[in-house]
Simulated scan of single mutants.
Amino acid sequence: MKPLLLLDVDGPLNPYEAPPHAHPPAGYVRHWTRPSAWPGPGPLPVLLAPEHGAELRALTGPYDLVWATTWTADANVWIGPRLGLPELPYVDWPPIREKAPRGTFWKTRYVLEYAAGRPFAWVDDEITSYDREWTARHSLAAALLVRVDPGIGLIRPDFDALAEWAAAL
């Protein structure tokens, strides 16, 4: 069974902290979206790099890709098609979230529950050392946590680390 690759959208794929420009950063295209949870009166802009689609499609050999984002099913409507990704399963976060263990990100517990003992790599911009420690103590399988700078998004070394980790399993 292949390991899971759990993907967040905002930060890794949509570098929401990129410096504001009249034009998107090099390699990114601005898209206007309307995810169901978006409270804004107008569309939500997201920055996506087409090359990320090719990189993620290449990782479907060693991994089963899963959305691990608050976009949930909306990632298959607004993000995946723009990157050339097939419809992916997604973590369906509980509507009422339990308090996260001290210092950990609220998603961490649910990511481990979703993995259910399967090896996984998790890509998110809010991963901390607390999440790494908690995962090391509680995961029933190998896990790679990749923190991405939300001002930059996924970069070549991130994709290389994901491919190398899966190959080493």
Rank of each mutant, 00 (worst) to 15 (best):
G42H: 10
P43G: 14
L44N: 11
L44A: 12
P45A: 10
P45W: 13
V46F: 13
L47Q: 07
L47N: 04
L48F: 15
A49M: 06
P50G: 09
P50I: 09
E51T: 08
E51N: 02
A54R: 12
A54G: 13
A54D: 15
L56Q: 06
L56H: 10
L56V: 07
R57N: 11
R57H: 06
R57Q: 10
L59A: 05
L59R: 03
T60N: 07
G61S: 13
P62I: 15
Y63Q: 01
D64E: 15
D64V: 03
L65M: 10
V66F: 04
V66S: 00
V66R: 01
A68M: 06
A68N: 12
T69A: 08
T69D: 05
T69N: 05
T72Y: 11
T72P: 01
A73Q: 09
A73D: 11
D74M: 03
A75M: 02
A75D: 02
A75R: 00
A75L: 02
N76L: 07
N76P: 02
V77R: 08
V77L: 11
V77T: 12
V77M: 02
I79P: 01
G80W: 14
P81S: 09
R82S: 11
R82L: 14
L83G: 01
L83K: 08
G84D: 12
L85R: 05
P86G: 15
P86R: 11
E87K: 08
L88T: 04
L88E: 07
L88N: 06
Y90C: 04
V91Y: 00
D92L: 08
D92P: 01
D92S: 09
D92E: 13
D92Y: 02
W93C: 01
W93N: 01
P95K: 08
I96S: 12
R97I: 05
R97G: 06
A100F: 15
A100N: 11
A100G: 10
R102C: 03
T104A: 10
T104N: 09
T104F: 11
W106Q: 09
W106R: 09
K107F: 14
T108V: 05
T108L: 07
R109L: 05
R109P: 00
Y110A: 03
V111W: 05
V111P: 00
V111S: 02
L112S: 06
E113K: 09
Y114H: 05
A115S: 08
A115N: 06
A115I: 08
A116L: 09
G117Q: 07
G117E: 07
G117N: 06
R118L: 11
R118M: 12
R118G: 13
P119I: 01
